[in-house]
Design a protein around this nucleic acid. Structure first.
Length: 433
RNA sequence: GUCCCCAUCGUCUAGUCUGGCCUAGGACACGAGCUUUUCAAGCUUGCGACACCGGUUCGAAUCCGGUUGGGGACGCCA
């Protein structure tokens, strides 16, 4: 058994295409068949190398590998010869305008397809007009090249989007005209944007590569895509590509169009981040830190990155978020969130900070439990509640009002940076007086 | 306009093929509570759906017909 994914390099790989590819891939792997990639680059004007590169890159990133790859632009001879044959057989004719186009004469009949997902679908070809096979520029049309290639490449199952149902009768008659045996068809539902119609930019129809930039893990994205129109059963939500290989069957795919939901994708991504080791996360995070202006991100070793990620990975839903949270730990100076500064650092806190700074400086052992003990003792001695002191301290150290446990954070920050950042705030008040 | 596809919580879905186990299960989101120095996470919990109308049947989310609603296709784009 053999399936294919046939993207056209006239645009980036998007959610819908990736899902179609995923279902083909899974079906092939589940049935020990082969999966081929066919680049439908017949439109010379609109096909772009940059799109092709993005598609190939994104597919690899998602973990969807292929057994063969073919380019339709290299097969024009084949299409022309076959069109000539139909011409000779009297099944097609030359365009009357003298443009050189070859047009298939649509027979008037009833054709039907036994779709693996929809069951029997019947069409009346009398309602379909004659179809161009070869355009005047001698390039083949989609429906023609598609049939020729699917037959030539031995495709046994065609899994594609619902939107191709109406192309099916056009292709069915071509299979017959060319004397090819029919493959099986499975039309999977489309993915709708949150507005209800086709996915648009606003509705999350960004390129797959964009999701990478946004800080999604490929495993999470693939997992989400699987859940759109298919379910592994047993109320399972988290499922790997490997696990799905043994459970997937295209016959179990849904008929209903699914609406893309960023919230669930975000949730899945957070689950995957939580379940990824801080060591692995460190490698993934470097480009994100660099992008955030951390020049020497590449030189950050795991030893300094790992404890910080340990602190934040439970609470981030994207790598971008994780990088935002981790950055203050490596930046030279803390960037204060204006609202946070206003709320907790507008009143002179330098007195208590001086005391606290001194206690921290003298701690023999700079670990969370000791830090916490020293902190609580200092607060008590100062006659302040822990809350009164902890919030300004958090802002002084991280610039933010939210974050992980204070004392673990201080330990991870280390004594040097902790003291330096406290001194900076103390100085802030000295200067303003 | 013509043809085609689809119809379970706001969203993704289980259940539909093989009617009874469904006063319809799970997840996301949302609300409440617990926990907590904060925000998350986690745990507990609440809200919430078989589009409608007819039929078949002892019995229908499940089968049939219609209505309505949504989506798609009607290119010398793919």
């Amino acid at each position: 058994m053999k399936v294919r994914f046939a993207p056209s390099p006239t645009g980036y790989l998007h959610i819908g295409g990736a899902r179609t590819c995923l279902f083909n891939w899974l079906y092939a792997r589940a049935n020990k068949g082969s999966f081929i990639l066919r680049i439908e680059d017949t439109d010379q004007a609109r096909s772009k190398k940059e799109f092709l590169d993005e598609i190939l890159f994104s597919l690899k990133w998602l973990g969807l590998d292929w057994d063969e790859v073919h380019y339709q632009s290299q097969r024009f001879e084949i299409y022309r010869d076959l069109a000539q044959r139909l011409l000779a057989d009297g099944k097609a004719y030359l365009a009357e305008d003298g443009s050189g186009a070859i047009i298939y004469k649509m027979p008037q009949k009833t054709v039907s397809v036994e779709d693996m997902i929809h069951g029997s679908i019947v069409f009346d070809t009398a309602l379909i007009k004659d179809q161009v096979l070869i355009k005047s520029d001698q390039s083949p049309t989609y429906n023609f090249a598609c049939v020729v290639d699917d037959a030539a490449m031995g495709i046994t199952h065609i899994i594609r989007g619902d939107d191709h149902i109406s192309n099916t009768p056009k292709q069915l008659v071509l299979y017959e005209a060319l004397g090819y045996s029919l493959p099986k068809f499975a039309h999977i539902p489309m993915i709708l944007g949150s507005g209800g119609g086709r996915m648009s930019k606003r509705a999350g129809a960004t390129a797959i590569s964009e999701y990478r930039t946004l800080g999604f893990l490929p495993q999470a994205l693939v997992n989400y895509l699987m859940l759109l129109g298919w379910s592994p059963g047993n109320n399972q939500e988290i499922i790997s590509l490997k696990d799905a290989e043994s459970k997937f069957d295209i016959c179990d795919a849904n008929k209903t169009a699914a609406t893309f939901d960023m919230n669930k994708l975000l949730w899945l991504n957070s689950q995957y981040i939580k379940n990824t080791s801080a060591e692995d996360l460190a490698g993934l995070l470097r480009p994100f830190l660099k992008e955030r202006g951390l020049e020497d991100a590449d030189n950050l070793d795991g030893k300094s990155l790992v404890p910080v990620l340990q602190l934040f990975k439970e609470r981030a839903s994207t790598l971008a978020e994780l990088a935002d949270a981790a950055k203050p730990f490596f930046a030279e100076t803390v960037e204060f969130d204006p609202a946070a500064k206003e709320k907790f650092l507008s009143q002179d806190i330098s007195g208590p900070f001086n005391v606290l700074r001194e206690r921290f400086a003298q701690l023999p052992d700079f670990h969370a439990p000791e830090i916490e003990a020293a902190f609580r003792k200092a607060a008590e001695d100062l006659g302040m509640s822990t809350k009164q002191l902890i919030h300004p301290l958090r802002v002084a150290l991280s610039g933010k009002t939210v974050g992980p446990g204070m004392f673990e954070m201080i330990e991870t920050l280390g004594r040097d940076r902790t003291l330096k950042r406290m001194e900076r705030v103390i100085l802030l008040f000295k200067q303003s007086v």
